[in-house]
Amino acid sequence: MKLIMAVVQDIDSPKLVAELTRNNIGVTKLSSTGGFLQRGNTTLLMGVEEERLDEVLKIIEKICRPRKHVIAPFPASPGETMAPYPIEVTVGGATVFVMNVERFEKI
């Protein structure tokens, strides 16, 4: 068994949870905040049999696509100057961790 922990953008979360549920993949949803943009994320936890791992990863990849986003200047570290113009960054997609599960019990 594998534990999948996927950090996705809030905007992708409802569609992803619906698709996972439609495919009989149990999912636990946690609210989280990203460190770089300080925006809301969703962390999803899923326990799946190893044979379903690729299926779940394909669903995540299909729904959580990277997108461009322009951010306003933000202060840098103390002693550094602020970026003088808006910056385009790539956001979205998903950060996915796959871990082995030593033991699983549903009580």
Rank of each mutant, 00 (worst) to 15 (best):
D54K: 10
T33H: 05
L53R: 11
I60V: 08
A76H: 08
G35D: 02
L45G: 05
G34F: 08
V56Y: 00
K68L: 11
D54C: 01
S32C: 02
L57H: 04
C64E: 05
P73Q: 06
H69A: 12
I63H: 03
T33I: 13
E61N: 12
E55A: 12
A76G: 15
D54Q: 11
E55P: 02
E50W: 03
L57I: 09
Q38A: 15
V56N: 00
K58F: 06
I60M: 01
E49Q: 14
L57T: 05
L57V: 03
R39L: 14
G35T: 06
I63W: 01
I59E: 00
R67N: 03
L44N: 07
G47A: 15
L44Y: 08
P75L: 09
I63R: 02
H69K: 15
R39Y: 07
V56T: 02
S31L: 10
T42S: 07
K62I: 06
R39K: 15
R67K: 14
I59P: 00
R39F: 03
G47Q: 13
I59S: 01
E49G: 12
L57A: 03
R39G: 06
S32T: 07
P73M: 05
Q38T: 14
F74D: 13
E50L: 11
L57F: 03
L45P: 07
I71D: 02
L45T: 08
G47Y: 09
E51T: 11
V70S: 09
R67D: 05
R39C: 10
P75D: 12
P66W: 01
P75V: 09
V70F: 04
M46K: 06
C64P: 03
G47K: 14
R65I: 10
R67E: 07
E61P: 02
G40F: 06
I63K: 02
E49P: 05
R67F: 11
F36L: 10
R65D: 01
F74W: 14
P73V: 08
A76I: 03
S31N: 11
E61D: 15
L57N: 07
S31P: 06
V48H: 03
G34Y: 08
K62L: 12
S31M: 09
M46G: 07
C64V: 07
K58Q: 14
E50Q: 11
N41R: 01
E51M: 04
S31E: 13
R52I: 01
I60S: 00
E50C: 04
M46E: 10
M46L: 15
G40L: 06
H69C: 08
E55F: 12
G47R: 13
I63F: 00
P75W: 04
M46W: 06
T33F: 06
N41F: 00
L37H: 08
R65M: 09
E50P: 01
M46S: 14
I71K: 10
E49F: 10
R52M: 05
R52Q: 09
N41W: 01
I60D: 00
G34P: 04
P75N: 13
T42L: 04
D54W: 01
N41C: 01
E49A: 14
F74L: 15
S32G: 04
R67Q: 11
M46I: 12
V48P: 03
P66Q: 01
K68V: 09
P75M: 09
V56I: 01
D54S: 10
H69P: 00
P73H: 06
K62V: 07
P66E: 02
M46Y: 08
V48R: 05
P73S: 08
R39P: 05
N41I: 01
R65P: 02
Q38K: 15
T42F: 02
